[in-house]
Design a protein around this nucleic acid. Structure first.
Length: 576
RNA sequence: CGGGGUGUACCUCAACUUGGUAGAGGGCCGGCUUUGGGUGCCGGACGUUGUAGGUUCAAAUCCUAUCACCCCGACCA
């Protein structure tokens, strides 16, 4: 593609409302444009990346025996009504009416539609197993679209559905999808973890999320760099030592700590480490006030707290509530003599000689010990921290943010039972089909890959998904440059490789900046300077130093590139 | 849904506090210049100041309503 013919509108500055790296770069490099909140157009370059991602996914799914279908995006309400999801989906479902007033909606996911297909077309155990998938636009009226392509109201998703005669078969299908996902994400060059997901509402027996490790994700994960351990911070359980008897300590004593409310300031004032403190936080758990006691250097996980208490809503009490309940200003609350429900994290319980608030403004207590000085329910409510030992291998874990790029799920008979998708087994008995569903956020992946593959200058596409593998930059307007460029372009084309050719009448600096921004992995620079000795320059986008170039004889340039590209695309790393 | 913020040229922003009829840089168009990391100079086009109403001799500016968008949280098969 010649740059002068392409729609490739790069920009120096991004709109102020773009915050995430991928959003900024996708806009600046001319891959997407915003049409509405969470609604985007793909420009030619963006579409090429999208297609490359789709291609990888299609190949890996085909490898595992899945077949592609295309279900409608516009759906009559009757199907979701059958499973109660027309109402159950709530405001997330984009509803509309046709001219006769009939209820319709745009598909947020397609379990009902595929199950309907299955109940009509699958009659016998001989028809099983099947695995059907589509790559399709989904619509969800998200409460808060964000991050450009990361969370949209209209987005492209690959959704697959497996149909098996029994749970064993369903698990085998699930395994095959797991393999397909691993291979696909590996090929895209992603660093990710499979995370055991909270198998919640769907009544499924097994599920896993594929979380891509980035700084800007929506979920917090604890992950280990030494093994494959990764868990959502909402579930991750810190490793605790064996429960040891507490050491004998002196009687508790009051300390005057004027104006020293927060852990850090008291710790400094008293010259004691924060791990010696018992941090006491007052929470509203639904309608009840609960005092939560943690070790001073730990943080509460509100999700874990809510789950441990069996309540739906957990909220930090206001300063007024604290004053009223404890009789002291914020920062001086403590479990000793506290009247009300007290929850103690195991790590706080293990502090044998603690310092905590005296429930009296400007006073703390020292030599405080669980059992002797205060009581409470022992519940694990602290969040895992960066550096905590990995529950699996003991090395320190790191905290990452994650973007959910895929989710695989054994559904069981949830939908098939409700919708009567049954088959006759070999004994002639009717049984519900056992299903699984498997999603990949295709359009989200475009952004996700950038979140992991960029530098200060722009995008750094992995070769497997790059809009073009090669970017030819013509420096200067001489006939020699033009001819050399056309020659390499032609030779690449003969080998089936497309190149983006920057034939604009722009200064070299402009072209180099744009090339870095656009992020094509291999850049060939052709100028009179090199051509004087019959050479062109090859520079890899991963190489930060602009002077780091390889000189190639013009006549070998194309063949060298072809070899490089074929080698790299063939040598797909395999990671389990 | 709760909290915070923003709407002015294609983009980034200024002028708003203290009302006097809109400006800079980038981009775009033309000319000259320059030609290996966003060249320099000259000239030019582009605005119902989100929308509606109100106050006023006069509104980007003050008031009211409304819409849109962004951020944090809640939510997220």
């Amino acid at each position: 593609m010649r740059y002068t013919k392409a729609l490739l509108p790069t920009q120096k500055e991004a709109p102020a409302d773009a915050i995430s790296t991928s959003h900024i770069l996708l806009l600046r490099a001319g891959y997407i444009r915003r049409v509405g909140a969470g609604i985007y157009s793909f420009l030619p370059m963006g579409l090429r990346v999208l297609r490359n991602i789709e291609k990888i996914v299609r190949e890996e799914l085909a490898e595992q025996g899945a077949e592609e279908v295309l279900l409608p995006a516009l759906l009559p309400a009757e199907y979701f009504r059958e499973t109660g999801r027309f109402d159950g989906f709530g405001d997330t479902l984009l509803r509309l009416k046709d001219r006769k007033g009939g209820d319709y909606h745009l598909g947020p996911t397609h379990e009902e539609i595929i199950t309907d297909l299955a109940r009509r077309e699958i009659q016998s155990y001989r028809d099983l197993p099947k695995n059907l998938y589509q790559i399709q636009t989904k619509f969800r009226d998200e409460p808060r679209p964000r991050g450009g392509l990361l969370r949209c109201r209209e987005f492209i998703m690959k959704d697959a559905y497996s149909f098996d005669a029994d749970l064993e078969g369903a698990h085998a299908s699930y395994e095959r999808m797991r393999v397909a996902y691993r291979r696909a994400f590996d090929r895209m060059g992603l660093r990710y973890r499979m995370v055991g997901a909270d198998s919640g509402a769907m009544g499924g027996s097994q599920s896993a999320e594929f979380q891509v490790l980035v700084q800007s994700g929506e979920d917090f994960l604890a992950a280990c760099n030494h093994c494959e351990y990764a868990e959502n911070l909402e579930v991750a359980e810190p490793v605790r030592g064996a429960e040891e008897p507490l050491a004998a300590v002196p009687e508790r004593k009051e300390l005057h700590t004027p104006g020293k409310g927060g852990i850090d300031s008291v710790a400094e004032f008293l010259g004691a480490g924060p791990e010696r403190f018992l941090k006491s936080l007052l929470y509203w758990a639904d309608k009840e006030l609960v005092l939560v006691v943690l070790r001073g250097d730990h943080e509460v996980s509100e999700v874990k707290l809510a789950r441990a208490l069996g309540v739906t809503d957990v909220r930090l009490a206001s300063p007024e509530d604290v004053r009223e309940k404890t009789g002291a200003a914020v920062g001086f609350a403590g479990p000793v003599g506290f009247s009300g429900r007290v929850v103690v994290d195991p790590d706080a319980r293990a502090v044998s000689d603690g310092i905590t608030g005296a429930n009296k403004t400007d006073y703390h207590l020292e030599h405080v010990q669980f059992g002797r000085d205060y009581q409470g329910e022992i519940l694990s409510v602290r969040a895992m921290r960066e550096g905590d030992p990995c529950p699996r291998c003991g090395n320190p874990v790191q905290i990452f943010r994650g973007i959910e790029a895929g989710h695989i799920f054994v559904l069981g008979t949830h939908y098939s039972a409700k919708m009567g998708a049954e088959f006759l087994d070999d004994k002639g008995e009717k049984r519900p089909i056992v299903m699984g569903c498997y999603g990949i956020g295709i359009s989200r992946l475009v952004a996700t890959i950038i979140e992991q593959h960029h530098d200060d200058s722009g995008i750094i596409w992995p070769l497997s998904v790059a809009p073009y593998p090669v970017h030819i930059v013509q420096v200067g307007e001489s006939d020699a440059v033009r001819e050399a460029s056309a020659r390499i372009e032609r030779e690449l084309k003969e080998a089936g490789i497309e190149a983006l050719v920057d034939d604009r009448n722009e200064r070299p600096g402009v072209k180099f900046k744009d090339a870095d921004l656009i992020g094509i992995p291999l850049r060939v620079t052709i100028g009179d300077r090199g051509l004087a000795s019959g050479q062109v320059e090859l520079k890899e986008r991963t190489q930060a130093d602009p002077k780091q170039v390889t000189l190639l004889p013009l006549e070998e340039a194309a063949s060298t590139l072809v070899r490089r590209i074929r080698n790299e695309l063939a040598g797909t790393p395999e990671r389990g």
